[in-house]
């Protein structure tokens, strides 16, 4: 049966501010899932805390909305339990790069088979406008009235240097490209990181739609850029101060975590006959005689 956009919509009214970049990310995710003809019940979306974490209210898949920062370990649990599911983790820059930074680096290095879509607005929106780990140095907000003295996290170069097997960046206004990048991420066997520049129209007066339209370089349109060279990818994102969109790096030899795990069952664990018989126990106990 053909999957339609209607299948992925819910009746919920959005809590996001009008004009929020997250609408664009949600729409691109829905389009990507429809384009790949994946049925809603085959998808599990794991969302973090923050404005972006509300995404599960608006997309009719299986959804779990977890503890702040623990999006990726929760997503790993879902995937390990049932590797037939498409598992997408979605959250904000605070969730992913502040409170959850630890998990981000470890998810990368494990190459867990989760697609991670970060709605990066460079600000804490839901707590009304504090600096986030991706906020620019100097940004003045109520909590830093004299300007942010910290340097921002560079998510793309961080992921690349930690060994990510798939790194892309989209812009929530460029729907067609973002949907395509998410489709590529879904097809990737392993951890696929799609950072999306998703402007906060209420609190971030620096990283606006106009700012990105003027500064972003689209690598997908650069015939000289090759996405299979980690070193070149790192050089490019450093050169452009991460103001790029497109597929930045993809490792064609990626082996996902669950596949690398020795002896691990391929069938969903929920459906397996899990009871051990007496003979199994007798054998196990021999070790303790």
């Amino acid at each position: 049966m053909e999957v339609t956009l209607q299948d992925y919509r819910t009746q919920e009214k959005s809590w996001w501010c009008p004009g929020c970049g997250d609408f664009g990310v949600l729409a691109a995710m829905q389009k990507a899932l429809v384009n790949l003809n994946i049925a809603p019940h085959e998808v599990a979306i794991v969302a973090g805390i923050g404005c972006s974490g509300k995404i599960g209210n608006y997309i009719n898949s299986y959804n779990i909305h977890v503890v702040h920062g623990r999006t990726l370990p929760s997503a790993l649990g879902v995937k390990m339990a049932n590797r037939e599911l498409l598992v997408i983790a979605a959250g904000g820059d605070g969730d992913g790069f502040a409170i959850g930074m630890n998990h981000f680096v470890h998810a990368v290095r494990r190459n867990i088979n989760v697609k991670y879509i970060v709605m990066d607005n460079h600000i804490y929106g839901l707590t009304k406008g504090q600096n986030s780990p991706t906020s620019d140095t100097g940004q003045k907000v109520k909590a830093t009235p004299h300007g942010n003295v910290e340097s921002p996290v560079r998510p793309l170069s961080l992921a690349l240097s930690a060994g990510a097997t798939f790194v892309a960046q989209g812009f929530s206004s460029n729907q067609a490209q973002l949907a395509r990048l998410i489709e590529d991420a879904i097809r990737h066997p392993g951890f696929a990181f799609v950072n999306t520049l998703s402007p906060c129209v209420t609190y971030n007066k620096i990283n606006t739609y106009d700012f990105y339209k003027q500064t972003l370089t689209n690598l997908d349109e650069d015939p000289d850029y090759r996405s299979d060279n980690r070193g070149a990818a790192i050089a490019k994102v450093l050169e452009k101060e991460e103001l790029v969109t497109g597929l930045i790096y993809r490792d064609p030899n990626s082996v996902p975590y669950e596949q690398a795990m020795p002896g691990f069952a391929e069938a969903p664990l929920a459906g397996r006959d899990i009871r051990l018989g007496s003979a199994d126990f007798e054998e196990l106990l021999e070790h303790y005689r």
């Binding site: 779990i64 649990g77 879902v78």
Partner: peptide, 15 residues
């Protein structure tokens, strides 16, 4: 933090 939330994700998915 990761250990317990991984278990919760797995429990949600039926393991």
């Amino acid at each position: 933090l990761a250990a317990v939330t991984m278990v919760i994700g797995a429990g949600y998915a039926g393991a």
